[in-house]
Amino acid sequence: MENMIEVINVEKSYRDFSLNHVTFALPKGSIMGFVGANGAGKSTTIKLILNIIRRDSGEIRVFGKDNIKREQEIKQEIGLVMDDCSFHDAFHAKDVAAILNGIYPNFERKQFFSYLDRFRIPVQKKIKDYSRGMKMKLSIAAALSHHAKLLIMDEPTSGLDPIVRSEILDLFMDFIQEEEHGVLLSSHITSDLEKICDYITFIDNGSIVLSEEKDTILDHYGIIKGGREAFRKVDDRDIIGKKSTSLNCEALVRDRMQMKRKYPDLLVEPAQIEDIMVFIRRGQEV
């Protein structure tokens, strides 16, 4: 399958944080959820893909092209949404259209205003009077109005109420109907990602912990539960992350069917994305 984004062994070091050999790929026609705790490296990775910051080593390809050598050509086909609305408070929606029209040769003013209409954005108001949800919808409308093939979004749904989030997620689902399209969506709202993503990439402390198809993750990963005594016979090598109280223990395992056979006395349940995120984080802390 052709990839829209390939991040290969990318490294980036700061004084107090580093990305270590980050590798993942977003196949064409799919939505990838980029998950991780605050400060895990999601925004840094997105900025590296967009060449907003420079990588120390590794390779990044977007649409099969090097993201530095073919930067401008690539960016023509990317719709970008940052975690905050980046348009000035004094602007109206028509000002945003005028600016983007001067930047993207393919910008469609009509399409932009039809998205605003669909989102019920009050175009006569200044951006400073918009709610956070409205600002985010304006940013998404801007990203969708120049025939982008790839949407890259950094926390587009954070701080939004469930109704607005649901509207935005529906829009991404519409966008992805075109098989030439792709979406990379960073978030720590795992329920959103479970609804719409085809792939999940989990980053923790600057390293990719897993990057797989969502269905594979949900089909295979599991949580085993039991009393402390029963848990003593669980091999540490089977456990990815663990949490325990004075009476009970719970642990994340990679192959829940195998664990069911291996530890018939323990309860084995399917793991959700959020469980995986929490247990992996805990596993690292232990």
């Binding site: 060449n51 960016k75 990317i78 970008l80 940052m82 348009f87 930047i103």
Partner: peptide, 14 residues
């Protein structure tokens, strides 16, 4: 104030 610069560098403008 608008956090414009990171967004702007992400646009197709050298």
């Amino acid at each position: 104030q608008a956090k414009w610069d990171p967004y702007c560098v992400g646009l197709p403008v050298p």
